[in-house]
Design a protein around this nucleic acid. Structure first.
Ligand code: DCP
Ligand code: MG
Ligand code: MG
Length: 595
DNA sequence: ATCCTCCCCTAC
DNA sequence: TAAGGTAGGGGAGGAT
């Protein structure tokens, strides 16, 4: 059973109550979750709050203390914290509990029952009533990017940030292993005939985040389950499902779907929380295991890798047995096809290409005309079993930090302060990989006029703008990056009188496209004014100019209002020594020009 | 031709 | 009570 404590309770500090619950075999939800919380514990609820939670099982802390003291689970309704509210008759409205029980007063199976004091640890006697705990006043959650704590909190909770940064860490971690495998491969090539077949296996963990969550919730393996942040219990909260298991997929639930939509498809869906630390250790285990099977290893993501098995294969019939050996539950029918993005898939469907086999029916020029030269050629090859994709690692070319959530600035200094935080982040990452950048790009997303105003903290429909600049010298200094971002790529416009709400003003505004995600085949871009070569970075130009730009014919020299997103990206990163040596190798006249 | 800048798209 | 990041491939169109 899983309890959530609402507000503070009169009997004892919340932390102590929580510790008691955990100690005696209960689970604890920091946030109430419709799908995992079985009971709520509350001392004093305001009438509106009572109304809000009237469909849930809400008991007083005394219920927990008495149950522990008596060594058995007492019926919660004797301790209901909702006595002022008439009991509802429609119990079917109750969300599933961890045990699937929907009737009130259900007693969980013994294995999960709250009172199970181990003989060695006598139950703590019920705490005597005390005065209310001193107001714990934890710092309120940072609401949006105006809050200086926002960035850190956001990163702690963003799964996409986790995926991306963990992938970069993985690649760094794998480099020595990769080098070693490469060395062995060269040795083999020198001493033995090349393998008759090139066999690359694609290893991908099933519903990764959910599978990790199952380790602590084995009771749910047969249920439809997703991993997502807790939703607001009341009404309209919804969060994105990072991963869902195959039971849930049978209902149509998908990774990346929002919980409100998912629940319409599958009302019994259970949602479990993230556990980023566990993903890390599990991924490390995965890669350690794969290294022992493979003669080549290409890390793709936290749950996925290519392994080169060519030397182990002398005949095609060896392939499946080997795959079975590597993964006992290997299921050929689940072998994922190459997935296509929305836009490409639509264009292909227009050519009557739905499966890979259909690709043989389309000529290469036709594919190239529809999809671009490169992708057309690549897909033409795929249709014929040709994949020239290389299996190597390239050094990283860019480092970037980007936030498109919680961006709600009212004034320019807020926006600039946030830019300073982002550039500081980029500088730190450069330092951590021992690199400097020779180029920087700033990207801004501006909320489109037709964006949905009810949007919570997401970015919604936006126009995007970007501007980049080459540095005279490569740098990894946070201050330098911040200066460039705030004064060279973007600067406070002259027309700040606009309610004091001018936020960013592109030195050279460009016309943006319609939206970030979604069907992006509107008009192409254009309207680029002259790009004259920028001066070397420090010192910044003293007199920035305002340039009129146009989007759909309207003057658009500044961006105003509740804006959206920011990215600070540095390009052409290089080892520190290299940056200097390249510079020193330049002919003196060019060098003087740069410095 | 090739490079550069700004933009789009994809994957996890 | 949510947490739409991040890196890379690549194209259009102008500059060189
Ligand atoms: N839109 C997405 C897609 C994936 N992920 C995370 C959660 C996934 O568990 C993990 C791995 O992604 P996969 O594409 O491999 O998806 P799963 O492993 O969840 O499912 P499958 O069994 O189809 O591989 O990345 C995410 O947060 N958001
Ligand atoms: Mg997977
Ligand atoms: Mg995967």
């Amino acid at each position: 059973m899983t309890l959530h404590i609402n507000g503070h309770c009169d009997e004892m500090p919340m932390q102590e109550l929580k510790a008691l619950i955990l100690k005696h075999g209960g689970q604890y939800d920091h946030y109430f979750s419709k799908s995992t919380t079985t009971h709520m514990v509350a001392s004093n609820l305001t009438p509106p709050k009572k109304h809000e939670v009237r469909h849930f099982k809400v008991a007083t802390p005394r219920w927990v203390l008495d149950s522990i003291a008596q060594g058995k689970l007492l019926p919660w309704h004797r301790y209901s914290a909702l006595t002022m509210v008439p009991l509802v008759s429609d119990q079917t409205l109750l969300v599933p509990t961890v045990h699937g029980a929907t009737s009130s007063g259900s007693i969980p199976p013994p294995g999960h029952a709250l009172p199970q004091p181990p003989p060695s640890t006598p139950a703590r006697p019920p705490a005597p009533a005390r005065p209310p705990a001193p107001a714990p006043t934890p710092r309120p959650a940072a609401k949006d990017a105006k809050d200086p704590e926002f960035l850190q909190q956001y990163y702690q909770h963003s799964r996409l940030h986790f995926l991306s940064t963990w992938k970069a860490e993985l690649q760094a971690m794998m480099r020595p292993i990769h080098d070693e495998l490469q060395r062995k491969a060269q040795e083999r090539a020198a001493n033995a005939p090349p393998p008759p077949f090139k066999v690359i296996m694609h290893v991908d963990m099933d519903c990764y985040f959910v599978s990790v969550a199952f380790r602590s919730r084995p009771d749910l393996v047969d249920k439809p389950v997703g991993v997502a942040h807790a939703e607001k219990m009341n009404a309209d909260g919804s969060s994105e499902i990072a991963s869902c298991n195959y039971v849930a997929r049978r209902f149509g639930v998908r990774n990346g779907m929002f919980t409100d939509q998912a629940r319409k498809l599958c009302s019994q869906l259970f949602l479990l929380p993230y556990d980023f630390a566990a993903y890390r250790t599990t991924t490390a285990q995965l890669y350690a295991a794969l290294r022992d099977f493979a003669t080549g290893l290409h890390d793709l993501s936290c749950d996925e890798a290519y392994i080169d098995e060519s030397p182990h294969i002398t005949d095609p019939s060896d392939i499946l047995p080997l795959a079975h050996a590597i993964r006992p539950k290997f299921a050929p029918e689940r072998d994922a096809p190459r997935r296509l993005g929305h836009h490409v898939a639509r264009k292909l469907a227009g050519m009557k290409v739905v499966t890979a086999a259909d690709l043989v029916n389309v000529s290469e020029p036709k594919l190239q005309a529809e999809l671009g030269a490169k992708l057309g050629e690549t897909l033409y090859g795929y249709g014929r079993g040709i994949d020239e994709g290389d299996f190597g690692h390239k050094p990283r070319q860019t480092v970037s930090a980007e936030v498109n959530y919680g961006i709600r600035f009212d004034a320019q200094d807020q926006a600039h302060e946030f830019m300073r935080q982002l550039t500081r982040e980029v500088a730190q990452r450069l330092h951590s990989v021992g690199a400097k950048a020779a180029h920087m790009t700033l990207k801004i997303m501006k909320r489109a006029t037709d964006a949905d105003p009810r949007m919570h903290l997401g970015h919604g429909i936006c126009d995007t703008f970007s501007k980049s600049q080459t540095f005279a010298r490569a740098t990894n200094q946070a201050d330098a990056l911040a200066t460039v971002a705030c004064t060279r790529l973007v600067y406070p416009g002259d027309k700040v009188e606009k309610d004091g709400r001018t936020l960013f003003d592109f030195v050279r505004p460009t016309k943006g496209k319609k939206e970030k995600k979604g069907n992006g085949d509107e008009v192409g871009c254009g309207d680029r004014t002259v790009g004259r070569r920028e001066e070397p970075v420090p010192p910044p130009r003293s007199a920035p100019r305002v340039v009129e730009g146009a989007r759909n014919g309207a003057p658009a020299a500044w961006i105003e209002g509740a804006t959206s997103s920011t990215i600070a990206q540095v390009d052409k990163i290089m080892a520190q020594e290299l940056a200097l040596s390249v510079l020193n190798d330049l002919p003196p006249d060019i060098r003087r020009e740069l410095i």
